[in-house]
């Protein structure tokens, strides 16, 4: 069953080379997809468009079958109304490269505030959910700590818990390991694997090939705003078909 799709997405900026030229991706329930590509390839823009932080020039967006954006008769993207978009925003979560935790909130409040004040859920239920997420992420001891008191890996786990507390259908990751020391990458890898085991649908933008290969079912390679190659993770990394994919992979595996 399709959880998320972006269709014929186009986006250009006035002052940036980072563009999307007709990109279509469909993600099924339980799938873990890694998007890789050199910097400036458009993978970051793709993620920002998918999570509604940027608007598309043209193209469509669907979350769990609901239409978030579509083309008008001129082929320009129009977005759903504010109310609808707010509903759709609770269907996905985003984990940032720099965590972007709220520094003035404790760990517990970072996790519970949006479910309470945005989704207006029951306090007891939200607290239970938060406790079990903190437990799962090994953060139980840190419930009352503030972000500045945590290591980078802990902060990233809080930001994952914060996204999960919204009960999303799909979780997007924007370079989740690149702000961390290399030895902490494993920590995040374990968390994502654990989530995959629970059939969490995830899309991970990364430039770390090994990480992508270890965590993803499928890898999509993007360059110059187009999908160059996609396929099962192991196959794409060990036996790339396209010349550009090969060059990119060689460059990293040296």
């Amino acid at each position: 069953m399709e959880i998320f799709s972006i269709r014929s997405a186009r986006k250009t900026f006035d002052n940036s080379l980072d563009v999307l030229q007709d990109i279509s991706i469909s993600i099924s329930r339980g799938e873990v997809v890694a998007i890789i590509g050199p910097s400036g390839s458009g993978k970051s823009t793709l993620l920002r468009c998918a999570t509604l932080l940027e608007t598309l020039d043209s193209g469509e967006l669907y979350f769990s079958g609901e239409r978030a954006a579509w083309n008008n008769e001129n082929g320009e993207t129009v977005y759903a109304g504010a109310q609808k978009l707010r509903e759709i925003k609770s269907k996905f979560g985003l984990v940032f490269q720099n965590f972007n935790l709220f520094p003035h909130y404790s760990v517990l409040k970072n996790i519970t505030d949006a479910p309470l004040s945005v989704q207006k859920r029951e306090k007891d239920e939200v607290m239970r959910t938060a406790r079990s997420l903190m437990d799962k992420m090994g953060l139980t001891e840190k419930a009352d700590a503030y972000p500045f008191q945590l290591s980078g890996g802990q902060q990233q786990r809080v930001s994952i818990a914060r996204a999960l507390a919204m009960n999303p259908d799909i979780l997007f990751f924007d370079e989740p390991t690149s702000a961390l020391d290399p030895e902490l990458t494993g920590e995040i890898l374990r968390v994502i694997r654990a989530l995959a085991a629970e059939h969490m649908t995830m899309v991970i933008v990364t430039h770390e090939i090994e990480f992508a290969r270890n965590v993803a079912d499928r890898i999509i390679f993007i360059a110059d705003g187009v999908i160059v190659e996609e396929g099962p993770a192991e196959a794409l990394v060990s036996n790339p078909q396209n010349e550009r994919t090969r060059t990119f992979l060689n460059h990293f595996q040296r």
Binding site: L94, F102, R162
Partner: peptide, 19 residues
Amino acid sequence: GQYEAARVLGYSETQIFLK
């Protein structure tokens, strides 16, 4: 990033500013 994190979580613009 603070604005973006809050927007993705679905906070309204007023909530983002005040909270």
